[in-house]
Design a protein around this nucleic acid. Structure first.
Lengths: 200, 200
DNA sequence: GTCTATATCGGGATAGAC
DNA sequence: GTCTATCCCGATATAGAC
């Protein structure tokens, strides 16, 4: 009946199912059901499950990375920039809570595939590392290397979202509202914590 | 030919394959191959793929959690205890580097299953939280809640291991030796960073 | 472009011999 | 306890009508 609309419906359905079940756990049938079409039509638009899966990962990565890079490379005060990056990052992730565990699993399953997509996205991690190194040289911040800086920053933002199905029951008695509130707090508290740790 | 030996070989092979491929991606055939036996014998020892998978997860969890709890509940100086917990935790994980992403994926795929095993393990997260809360009340540490304390601690220890396939290429130009060195450094630097962040 | 029907294959599980 | 052979189902993918 419609052209572009069907492709869009497929992509939306595939994103949900792949992220929830992983590549292997997802089935073309369940994706077709969620999109309101049948299996054959899936193969008409995307020739194979592999191709459909790669498309979803590509779209997901291209949606995430540029926003982070942009915040990091602005010319605000360094600590102010950190606050913005952390707030922006946690906000994006909390709106897409299944992305982190999904990416982590797929990159362990097939490192080259995901990695190629990240590299092709054109994000310049080297520039970000350089910016951080400058502040270290200046003595503004106190940490041994840009690598530790980035690893700590990413850990604090990503892990509490990725591990929610474990953390919410364990440290919040499975209280969903309390965990939502917790994530909301982290948008500012993570920056406080991080800056306190590195301030010279 | 042998009894206990075969079961052990199966468990070792299953652990490797499940952790690498995830539950859905692993096949009984590949597990049998790695164990040097055939599929039928797998089903003789463990009646189904489900049962074998649950056994692996159970063994993995029971191997990890108690060591963490023990370090946390000792009666050393609080900051000294933190240093030990972090060092112990990163050491265990770096010796079992595929566990974190595996657990994160499976717990997102099927939260109840893994969670039940964690709860059955008898670990008392409530006691750990209480210990932390006491230090907050005393004014020894400066953080808003035990939940943020624990989430930050776990994030800093676990994430750099789980995300290695992404971080190693991105921030270390895929230099394996450099990343090994990086993890080694984190056994002490993570504690420095963490304590600096929370010290009152 | 969308459907139904079907081919084909792979993987979990079982039967039965040794 | 271990093997070979086989069953059975579900999943990917294609053929062909509309």
């Amino acid at each position: 009946m419609k052209e572009k609309n069907t492709e869009k419906k497929i992509l939306e359905a595939a994103k949900i199912v792949f992220i929830e079940k992983g590549k292997d756990g997802a089935t073309m049938q369940s994706i077709a059901d969620k999109a309101g079409i049948n299996k054959a039509l899936l193969h008409y638009y995307f020739r194979s499950k592999d191709k459909l899966f790669n498309k979803i990962v590509e779209l997901t990565i291209h949606h995430f990375l540029p926003r982070i890079e942009k915040a990091f490379l602005s010319d605000l005060d360094f600590f102010e920039r950190i606050r913005i990056v952390i707030k922006e990052y946690i906000t994006i992730l909390s709106n897409n809570p299944f992305i982190p565990a999904f990416i982590l699993h797929e990159v362990n399953r097939n490192p080259e595939g995901i990695l190629k997509l990240v590299m092709d996205s054109g994000i310049r991690f080297d520039l970000i590392a350089k910016k951080i190194d400058i502040e270290i040289q200046r003595g503004i911040i106190n940490i041994s290397s840009p690598q530790h800086f980035l690893a700590n920053l990413l850990s604090l933002c990503i892990f509490p979202i990725a591990a929610r199905p474990l953390l919410q029951p364990i440290i919040f008695s499975n209280d969903k509202i309390a965990y939502d509130q917790f994530i909301e707090e982290r948008k500012t508290q993570t920056a406080d914590f991080f800056i306190q740790a590195i301030k010279a």
